[in-house]
Design a protein around this nucleic acid. Structure first.
Length: 593
RNA sequence: GGGGCCGUAGCUCAAUUGGUUAGAGUACCGGACUGUCGAUCCGGGGGUUGCGGGUUCAAGGCCCGUCGGCCUCGCCA
């Protein structure tokens, strides 16, 4: 062993012992020929080590030449620093190591940025030198938190007789859903494996096979564009249970959430977590994943708008649209004309809104360039409907229903953040249930599965399958945390006749279904228990628990927005020989290759 | 595929809005100092202003293109 203790370990009780530490030079304070201080760092903490000629330390030979990030091994005696010399900023601040022997295990080039102190460099550099970035205490904390979370998850499920079962990474491509990452087969020219978007089908087959409680910390791949909370390669806590109904899954996951919150953050969560319907959330917040740490619900003023002289509102109302608004309490003075007319208007236009109407409540009346289109009576109705008080800022979007929802829900999030309407350290978890089974795809003139094609229709809505499929509710559920989709799941179809009915609805022809999912359909014909499951986004959970707003900060080696790994240079071109083995010919190359 | 922001010393930023030799903090290098802990003090080196064109007497700043990073719409069963 190159060390007897680590750098966060030594206390006053160790005084007098001779110990050996190994670590990185975090900083050094050179006091001349006779005295040098070094803060030695490892993942457990920092310890001050002292080179003093009184202790016969070799100062001029080595100690004075130590530089940041050198890796050293030091042996010496633990001493109390002295009453006036204790450093309260360090857990080891009461002691120091008086070094007798120093071995430089590895020199460091001058690091491209500072592990401690100094401003964070741009993310490009951080990703290229990820091994330096990962030394920063903040990232170490998140990676360690991630470990604690996965361990808590395992502890919870293991204690309830779940089995952790691995499923293949090389699977069959199922063109539904996200774009697949493909892996060419060498021994089957022209054929490809797909990396899993999720272990969905395998876990259902595990249920048929009788492993009635399954979980897996599963890596998943989706070749879609990235976001701050989305990586092409991510990790799911994947769960499936047999002989259960929706409420069994929700209760099981309620328990998981409470368990990990307690284990990882020391936070008590009240269960059962609140449950809302999709329809309710869409109406009140315009989103299926609203952040419930604040209110500011969407309010419909369609009836009032219709009676006004405001052409924009009237036109929208007569063409099947809606006029909805939000009330930013007390914000009348916080947004200038410019912010409202330019910034916020452009903001909602990203979501398809053609305009943003706003009114301020002052002296019990509406103050706005469009107020003149509303009679005194209508103005009072708006104020009353919007719960307006003097000083409030009312914002309205008049458009097709979908546009009012997405624009106002995004605006709601932005305003809440800017107006500090919630405590960022708080957690708000809620279930959203009864999603629609399918949504109409106008481009393809057919229905698409909202969740996935194996999702059980709500038994109460079976009649609607033939008459009004868009109204059929699914037996599905999402878990929403602080406005993020943190988990998603459903009761699965375990009856091949029902499965066929859903495929029909999705215009997946029997031969096509057989070709794509034949193995699953066949499995369902051999005695499939009722089953249901869910998958939690591990990366997002860590992000939320760590208080980060960026998923890259909780992944050791994340990819950039263009899905590159700046550390290794992946993806890269490959030898012609490799391509030949795989029977692949690249037809289009960028100009520089 | 669309929109937006950004790219100047190793790093973080500045450069009076197109005008002298591109500055500061920090890091780095050298020196001083026996109790520092963001050490301090003295001195020093360090620039293809992402890259390629263009406009101009003159470009870090303007125009066009391109590369890269971030945010976002679409996309993400």
């Amino acid at each position: 062993m190159h060390r007897t203790h680590h750098c966060g370990e030594l206390r006053r009780s160790h005084v007098g012992q001779t110990v050996t530490l190994g670590g990185w030079v975090n900083s050094y304070r050179d006091h001349g020929e006779n005295l040098v201080f070094v803060d030695l760092r490892d993942r457990y903490g920092k310890t001050q080590i002292v080179f003093n000629t009184e202790d016969n330390s070799d100062i001029d030979g080595l100690a004075r030449k130590l530089r940041r990030e050198d890796v050293v091994k030091v042996t010496g005696e633990v001493r109390y620093r002295g009453d006036s010399l204790v450093n309260p900023k360090l857990t080891t601040g009461e002691i120091e190591l008086r070094v007798h022997e120093l071995v430089v295990l590895s020199r460091s080039k001058t690091p491209p940025f500072e592990v401690e102190g100094g401003d964070l460099p741009n993310e490009e550099l951080r990703l290229k030198y990820r091994f330096i970035d990962l030394r920063r205490p903040e990232l170490q904390k998140s990676i360690i938190l991630r470990h604690h979370l996965t361990q808590a998850v395992r502890e919870y499920f293991n204690g309830l007789q779940f089995l952790e079962i691995e499923t293949p990474m090389l699977g069959r491509s199922t063109p539904e859903g996200a774009r697949d990452y493909l892996v060419p087969s060498r021994v089957h020219p022209g054929s490809f494996y797909a990396l899993p978007q999720s272990p969905q089908i395998y876990k259902q087959i595990l249920m048929v096979a009788g492993f009635d409680r399954y979980y897996q910390i599963a890596r998943c791949f989706r070749d879609e564009d990235l976001r701050a909370d989305r990586q092409p390669e991510f990790t799911q806590i994947d769960v499936e249970m047999a002989f259960v109904e929706r409420n069994d899954i929700l209760a099981m996951i309620d328990g998981l959430v409470a368990f990990v919150m307690k284990a990882v953050r020391g936070v008590e969560i009240k269960t059962p977590l609140p449950r809302y319907t999709y329809a309710d959330m869409m109406e009140r917040f315009g989103s299926d994943k609203p952040d419930l740490r604040f209110g500011m619900e969407l309010i419909d003023i369609g009836e009032i708008a219709q009676k006004s002289d405001f052409g924009v509102f009237r036109t929208v109302m007569s063409s099947g649209g809606r006029v909805r608004g939000i009330n930013a309490k007390g914000a009348a003075d916080k947004y200038s004309r410019r912010l409202l007319d330019v910034d916020l208007k452009n903001f909602v236009s990203d979501f398809g809104a053609k305009g943003l109407a706003y009114m301020k409540v002052a002296d019990g009346k509406l103050e706005s360039t469009i107020a003149k289109f509303f009679s005194e009576e209508l103005q009072q109705q708006i104020i009353s409907r919007m719960n307006g008080e003097n000083g409030d800022l009312l914002l309205f979007v008049a458009d097709q229903p979908k546009v009012t929802s997405s624009a106002l829900s995004a605006l709601r999030n932005r305003l809440a953040r800017e107006l500090k309407l919630f405590d960022p350290s708080e957690f708000s978890c809620q279930w959203v249930v009864d999603f629609p089974l399918v949504t109409w795809n106008a481009d393809e003139q057919r229905f698409d599965a909202e969740h996935h094609p194996f999702c059980q229709p709500n038994p109460e809505d079976v009649e609607l399958m033939n008459t009004d499929p868009g109204k059929v509710r699914a037996d599905s559920y999402d878990l929403v945390v602080n406005g993020y989709e943190a988990a998603s799941g459903s009761v699965r179809i375990h009856d091949s006749a029902v499965q066929q009915q859903v495929f029909d609805l999705l215009k997946i022809h029997p031969e096509e279904a057989e070709r794509r999912f034949g193995f699953l359909l066949e499995a369902l014909r051999y005695g499939a228990p009722p089953h249901a499951g869910i998958a939690l986004g591990l990366d997002r959970w860590v992000m939320l628990l760590a208080g980060d707003e960026n998923i890259r900060d909780v992944i050791a080696f994340p990819k950039t927005q263009k899905a590159s790994d700046l550390l290794t240079g992946a993806p890269s071109d490959v030898d012609a020989r490799q391509l030949k083995d795989l029977h692949i010919e690249v037809t289009e190359l960028p100009d520089d290759k």
